[in-house]
Design a binder for these strands. Structure first.
Lengths: 201, 201, 201, 201
DNA sequence: AATGAATGAGTCTTCATTCAT
DNA sequence: AATGAATGAAGACTCATTCAT
């Protein structure tokens, strides 16, 4: 009994320290591009030593991936929360997603990074695939609930792709404020939701 | 007269050397992620010295940007070629774009890079904006020709976004061959073209 | 108690390693102009890695400055030692200073460098100013002790300037040996001490 | 006859171009430390090609040296001009020299550079020695004219050294304006002239 | 004599990772 | 388990000088 408790306690401590590291990283990502964040910076921000970071993650990439996976899980969770009360419209879902991306550009940057470029360990690859599948499940569910009968999976892919693509024009909207960008991207989201709902342009 | 000829010749030589450097870079991008390509590698591949690279570009970023701009110009040109013969359908245009992206993943990676993260000189920013606008013009034209009457500009944005988003799921299709990926992404392109043409899902 | 001891030990180790680096630099300066000494050379001479150098100094300039400050502190200390036994004559002080400069040309080169050209961080500038002020204090004290009643501070400036100026003719005494140069510069020092003591020429 | 005229003309053209280069260098030195001025910058400023620079000077060092020698010759000339009208006092001479140094810091920086550090070709060394000797002659003459009977040469050395030393505290007078520095250095010059004239402190 | 593109050795500096304590 | 100093390979970029035109 005691032993088990001890183990639990240890695990909890471990988890909380891991959370501290993750949060430190997130705080830095809010300030600068995640690709330019160094281990030293994270360790300083988290108030732990560099060695400790490597005690929790085999390398920086895995730490970054963990941040990404956490975000993805968060989105999935939020999708579920939204749906649990009342079936949302496709538009609401799309708006929610783009809104999240506006608030968490790092998530999008990381998705681009890991999807396009990054060498990932098999284990990491699997975790990545899994969480992306979960995300896709939610989108498919939403599509089904708005009456998309056929090809729902591939349509989910297409919709997810379409939404993700919106953010590519994010930063480079010359001379726009964050608020304007948000409005613009939300408008694009609404439009995409529209066409996927079969609305005439 | 002779003097003018000489100037022209010099410019041509300069252009051809610049092309050599650009091509060398492209060859490397086919093998490895552009972000990990070094000046030394490019100079070696091009058969010129490191110094020469800096004789043509103030820094690596500008070289990369030039590669990107060239690609973008190429796409724009191809759009024009396609349209010059016979008005293409939206589907054909989308398929063409995604096909191009399949063959030139670096273009997409660079677009992500420059659009999301990259610090660019004002001059570079302007060039980037301009070429993107040109690209958008072609897409808008295509939309107009298929009967999109209202909001054609914003719809172009949305369509372009949607297409770009497709590639984000490119590399991470676990265990798929290039050919399968091409098929999958083209299918998504077709679907997106469909919804933007007002086809019911 | 133990913890404090540990901290002390660490600091001592750190100091000793810093000393190793500094000494390595000094050995190199004996052989070649300090401006042409590279980080690699210092690291090799010190038997540590390049990275370690940067672990102790943010950049080469600060390392050089530290060498300079150490020398300046050494001179100040020596001034104090000389004065502690018996009030020295102005001539003795001047001779001592020039003798030191003969043995440590790098000190003079660095003084020229930092005083005239070098971009220094605010922090570095402050340290530089401080040590120079200390040096000046000693000279002023000596002047006071030989009966310089008025304008002692500005006179100290003038004397210090005059002594420093001597070394500018050091290296370029064509075809002279070190010993001859030493004799010549010491003679100049004596002469300057003389005129500052009110001796008729 | 004609041939001689042609040669003369050629020489004049050569000289004038050389002057253009020298002046360009000087303009740059007014803006930045001469050690950080590049051949490219000089060629651009002079409106000639890099190759042309090397047509007039075997290397950058010799160009710098030429700038220095020109300045030194200018000072010598000015000394002569001053003396030609009426025998100046030692104080006037010292003030003049320090005033010149205030206006031409680069001269002083170069003197430090060449006297202390620089590797010079035998030819360059000789030219340097010669011009310095000329300068010293003027100072000795002045000393003689104010009644310095014995050791006039070595005293000239000492005086020249003393004056040069003044400028070492130039730039690093924290928070002082150019005007304040000028006043301060001139005051030091006057003081040194005083002690060398046998004035009691 | 003038040109200026090409050269490439050499510079400082960064930073993920290791490992002895 | 936590620490953080040490590591050193690797990077981008500079710039005096050459030389074919």
């Amino acid at each position: 009994m005691t032993k088990k408790k001890l183990e639990e306690l240890k695990q909890m401590e471990r988890d909380s320290r891991r959370k501290i590291i993750l949060d430190a990283a997130l705080e830095l990502f809010a300030v600068k591009d995640f690709r330019s964040v160094t281990v030293r910076e994270i360790s300083r921000q988290a108030g732990v030593s560099i060695g400790t970071i490597y005690n929790y993650y085999p390398n920086l990439t895995e730490l970054f991936l963990d941040v990404f996976l956490d975000s993805a899980a968060e989105i999935t969770q939020m999708f579920d929360n939204i749906s649990s009360k009342k079936t949302p419209t496709l538009e609401q879902l799309c708006e929610f997603y783009i809104s999240y991306l506006n608030d968490n550009m790092t998530f999008y940057q990381m998705m681009s990074h890991f999807m396009l470029g990054g060498e990932l360990s098999p284990d990491a690859t699997q975790k990545l695939d899994e969480i992306m599948r979960e995300l896709m499940n939610r989108i498919e569910t939403a599509l089904l609930s708005v009456g998309c009968k056929t090809n729902s999976r591939i349509t989910a892919h297409a919709l997810f792709s379409a939404l993700n693509g919106i953010m590519i024009s994010y930063a480079r909207y010359p001379g726009k404020t964050d608020e304007e960008i948000r409005r613009h991207t939300l408008r694009l989201a609404k439009m995409i939701a529209g066409v996927f709902s079969g609305k005439k342009l």
